[in-house]
Design a protein around this nucleic acid. Structure first.
Lengths: 130, 130
DNA sequence: CGGTATCCCCCAAGATACTG
DNA sequence: CAGTATCTTGGGGGATACCG
């Protein structure tokens, strides 16, 4: 598995990036995208479920980020029903699923940081095992 | 290693995050941080080297991002000499080095994307394609 | 239920010029 | 050499209200 950036620059869907790291950060960077993908990694979710699970995100921002993820081919949007109440389900595309290893690496790194230098907080039950 | 976000929220250096993914994205998100870390992963670099290697970054932005990375404990700044010309060398801290696996996962993912859907460009060999 | 429509603010990031 | 000092701008993200 190559872990060096290839080429002098790269192109994807008309956009130009100086290296593959830039490209990746453009696709999944920002405050919410990685978090949203994280919540979709094991199961598809309805819009309202995401709104509850993704902490503190506003409806508008969630909607906007989902649209960008859909446009970039990471997330699939499926509509069930025609008249309200409609049901909209989001899931990872095959392409989106290729991102899961990255997500898991980031998660375990983040966990490690907090274990060593930070603090976990649990509102409901205590956490004995990590 | 655990690849699920732990706890209801986490704290690090006084900041509060809803999950470890958010924390990680705050530390290494943005347009330049991951790219800078990438260029430091194998060797320490002088400021001027980074400016040349990190594509299209302005002096000011590079300086700012390095300061933030230093403040977050990912990067070490070492000054050699007192009067101009000074020599300033940046390197990864031990903490910064723990991020290398993430960086490599992101890189190989980015490479994979471009291999499948995008386009690598090499100035030396493909100058006429630009 | 699953979003839009507005309005607004902040700050990341760029451009340009200058300095210890 | 390795940065600051200003000024400017774009857009990410938030608050609130409304809609098919």
């Amino acid at each position: 598995m190559k872990t060096e950036c290839i080429g002098d620059y790269v192109k994807l869907k008309g956009k130009v990036y100086p290296c593959t790291i830039s490209l990746a950060m453009d696709l999944i960077g920002g405050k919410w995208k990685a978090v949203i993908l994280y919540h979709l990694k094991d199961a598809e979710k309805r819009y309202s479920e995401l709104r509850k699970e993704v902490p503190n995100v506003t409806e508008m921002t969630l909607s906007l980020q989902l649209k960008q993820l859909e446009k970039d081919g990471l997330v699939l949007r499926k509509v069930h029903g025609k008249k309200p109440p409609i049901k909209v389900v989001y899931s990872l595309t095959d392409f989106g699923k290729t991102f899961i290893p990255v997500l898991e690496t980031i998660t375990s790194w983040g966990n490690q940081i907090v274990l060593e230098k930070g603090e976990f907080v649990n509102n409901s039950t205590c956490l004995n095992e990590i």
